[in-house]
Design a protein around this nucleic acid. Sequence first.
DNA 1: ACGCACGGGACACCCCGTTCCT
DNA 2: AGGAACGGGGTGTCCCGTGCGT
Lengths: 210, 210, 210, 210
Amino acid sequence: MPGKGERTRSRILQRSAALMNRHGFSSASMAAVVEASGIQKGGLYRHFESREALVGQAFGLAVTQVRARFVAALEGKLDACEQLLALLDAYEGAGTEVPLPGGCPIMNAAIESDHAHPELRELARSAMTGWHAMISAIVERGLRRRELRSALDPAEVANVFIACIEGGVMLTQLYNDERRLGAALRHLRVYIDRELRPVPASPSAKEKES
Amino acid sequence: MPGKGERTRSRILQRSAALMNRHGFSSASMAAVVEASGIQKGGLYRHFESREALVGQAFGLAVTQVRARFVAALEGKLDACEQLLALLDAYEGAGTEVPLPGGCPIMNAAIESDHAHPELRELARSAMTGWHAMISAIVERGLRRRELRSALDPAEVANVFIACIEGGVMLTQLYNDERRLGAALRHLRVYIDRELRPVPASPSAKEKES
Amino acid sequence: MPGKGERTRSRILQRSAALMNRHGFSSASMAAVVEASGIQKGGLYRHFESREALVGQAFGLAVTQVRARFVAALEGKLDACEQLLALLDAYEGAGTEVPLPGGCPIMNAAIESDHAHPELRELARSAMTGWHAMISAIVERGLRRRELRSALDPAEVANVFIACIEGGVMLTQLYNDERRLGAALRHLRVYIDRELRPVPASPSAKEKES
Amino acid sequence: MPGKGERTRSRILQRSAALMNRHGFSSASMAAVVEASGIQKGGLYRHFESREALVGQAFGLAVTQVRARFVAALEGKLDACEQLLALLDAYEGAGTEVPLPGGCPIMNAAIESDHAHPELRELARSAMTGWHAMISAIVERGLRRRELRSALDPAEVANVFIACIEGGVMLTQLYNDERRLGAALRHLRVYIDRELRPVPASPSAKEKES
DNA sequence: ACGCACGGGACACCCCGTTCCT
DNA sequence: AGGAACGGGGTGTCCCGTGCGT
């Protein structure tokens, strides 16, 4: 069991991550953090060296939490297409029920940090690169196992996935309407079937039309 | 010729739009606006009632400018597929050469305003709805003219376009690498050919022409 | 008859003097001058080069006006004591009926300009010196004509007069009560009789008690 | 020992009183206070709710400090005439060596506040009334003890004292010449001897001439 | 070890004096 | 002559980070 200080620190981080994902990692004021975390300002700086440090760690926690959701979704899925579909499934309902409201923290940090907060930008880049690598790896492994159509560029496929999902998340946030993301996910599912999944080898097969 | 005040006002708006699209519409300080616009603080408040008013108008100008780029691209294109492709073409090279750096102002405002700046959020919503309506209208007209595959939902197609493009723009901004958006655009071109364009009249069929 | 511009200028000065004597020569804002004088800001700077110039001339007019009151009071008085008493009489009722409310402009300018407005201070000094010289001259002439007790220092007598009057004016302004100045004037009248007027030569005369 | 905040507050007040007595209680800018007090604006408003509050308290301190000088001068003096003379003595040399340059704060506030700053005017009135009461009380006690000529009006005597002193202080400030106040004080000493001190009872004595 | 007070800095907004254009 | 436009300074507030006091 963690010490009392550790639990306090954890609580601050959790609340800060939730707060900052909605109000902006760089925009959220320390006063808001104080209010949200139920600790006093003096105590805050005992646990975190500076505002920037807190922002960094809160962002790290936020990224970790959303990633955990996807790693869990991949559990037990072996086929690449199944894995990709599982990722998409994990997003359904993520608009409201998710433990971290406010949309994708990586995108939030990326947009917010543009040209003004280089250190946050660097963190966002790293996180995004990690996510991109995760999808790329799925595709790559799929290619090796012949579960995906050959001649695919894993990086490019990951790029399409991320772009479409992030755009959908943004629209869902903006309109507070999950169907925006839903449409993007539906598109990606079709994309998997039409562009990624190997063409059914049987030349006689004649059933793949909508 | 516009009056002196009007020209000054226009210059302030232009510079503010460029500044705010990079530093954030709500985050950019009035001091930064002063520095960027070459006017003093005292003069600023003669032209704009408040910071919020300036933000709103600068955002409006930013949206107008990016939209102008697309309406220009549609000039002379009659076919729906051509129009959609022209929109995508208009994005190529838009990462750096565009007169308004900092990515898509609508997405920037949408992300930034999340849960904290309701008036800006409303503006972003309106602008996004306008853009969505523009693409929907293209698809709708294409459907009526049989230039697009029937049974398409214009709103959903527009949603996919926007999501994919915005996600791509965000990635390009984050990595400062145009190829990110390029991959998304390539994907959408394939999407047009494979999913929107009417099925090429199978050698035997010969009746789908406008 | 003066030209139209000259009359406008005169009206501005008159109103400014009245305004500034109450609100402070250096504190009164140009906006207040505009409102009081019924002219627009653009027109003001046609008549006066700068705020400072207007202040100087308004102060000059104020001083001229109060001095006129005293020169008029001296008309026809030949004896030094009579003249001094006439000066005091001129102050009775000056608290409210005077065309220039707000107390003595010289004192107002002197207090206000202390250590902050050297040019106004210089004007105040000049005006005060002029007033002091006027009283000194009366005493001096009185000494030459044996109308005053010998061995008096004219400068010192003038100093006492001015100090007592100005203090009384200040008290009357502060309490909005003319009796404050009245008490000071009464004191000076006694002072004239007991200290300035030559001792009645007749040794038998024994009736000079209050 | 007072807390740190209390000491800072006291330092601000002290410096502000000195500054404002020279530059005007209402004219002195907060920027000047900041510079004089060695604290930043952010810290200033922690100690004083508003500019007006600071002005009021600085004026209060200024009045307290000058009054302290006079109550100290009265120490040990029992006779009314002695007390009045001690007050006058306390003014000698007060032009330059005093810890609060800039003349009498009450008069400064009275002149400055005329018709424009009602709250400061009220403070000045209160302070002036306090001073007037102090001198009136001396005279009144002197009357009861037969130390002063009967048939004197204490309020009127106090009025003469104050008027003459304030006028003298003003002249000394204007010309930066202590002899101006000196002449007024000399006059008041003579006034005490000739008008206030009981007539020497001996009828044969016939040498009361200077 | 925790919390509040303290101080420094930046920010938004306003007002004032002055000038330019009409 | 008039009014809009502009530059500068001023006020009050908020927020960050630190150091005292408990």
